[in-house]
Amino acid sequence: MDLLNALVTTLNFVIIPAVTYGSQLALGALGVTLIYGILRFSNFAHGDTMAFGTMATILTTWTLQAGGIGLGIFPTALLALPVGIAATVIWVLATDRLVYRFYRGQRVKPVVMVMVSLGVMFVTNGFVRLIIGPGDRRFDDGARFIFSAGEFREWSGLAEGLALRSTQALTVVLAILVMIALFWFLNRTRTGKSMRAYSDNEDLALLSGISPERVVMVTWLIAGALATVAGVLYGLDKGFRPFTYFQLLLPIFASAIVGGLGNPMGAIAGGYLIAFAEMTITYNWRRVLNHLLEQDLPPGVAIQLLSVDYKFAVSFGLLVLVLVIRPTGIFRGKSV
């Protein structure tokens, strides 16, 4: 039994990618859950808001790169990120002003709001494709690896390599920083507290003099920023393609619902849960088993629960499980 090599393989192919992907999902799900908590609808445009923010960041990155400005070992996109966030915030505030506010005033059913968000999604999607095109875009630069598989093998003398890409480390660090900042904001500042109060009980919050428009504005601001950060991190890690971002909607919603819609802590837990489930179920464990059994399995045997093509089935399966067993989610979200 070659435990060490098995462990390194698992770390390299399952745990590190899952933590990275989980951080990206968690950031996305936080945006969805905040919108849900305050504005009380599932925002179908969130995936495309992420695409919009990433597009703005990519365009800024290109401008910076053309001007010869960079961050050395860090990706230039970090420098462009604030511009991307600003652009996205302007975009979501504009959609709120032009579209959502009217329906809020009408106090329509949540499902109508979802329908409206579908329209916003359509427009955002068309806009992004119009500006940057539907194709693949890579915009990561700087150092590719913190340490590569070869370096690790040389250092440790193990048969298996372990690589840590700089975008993976960056994702996790940045995601944790953003989450800490968000929780500090929600729990410690006056605006954050008023947001939580508004989310818990709208009428009571209004009675105590909290301005609803201000709360809504701050929510969009945060959601726009979170969407951009999540989108840029995902794009740095896996490349940007508008359609992929639309498809991220499903795992993101699954994360938010599994954790409990409207509950930020739940969104984070849900994000990591979905990512880990997806990775462990779609990974081919053959290599790990080879090390554990110290003999090669016959060729053609795949120890894989589901092929990678069905990764959406994992999100969907967990979603269904939670809806059947505990519709409020693990962390008791708002309502059923």
Binding site: F41, V111, L319, L323
Partner: peptide, 9 residues
């Protein structure tokens, strides 16, 4: 359940 859940499912 909530109306949005059907949409997501």
């Amino acid at each position: 359940l909530r109306s949005d859940y059907l949409a997501i499912a």
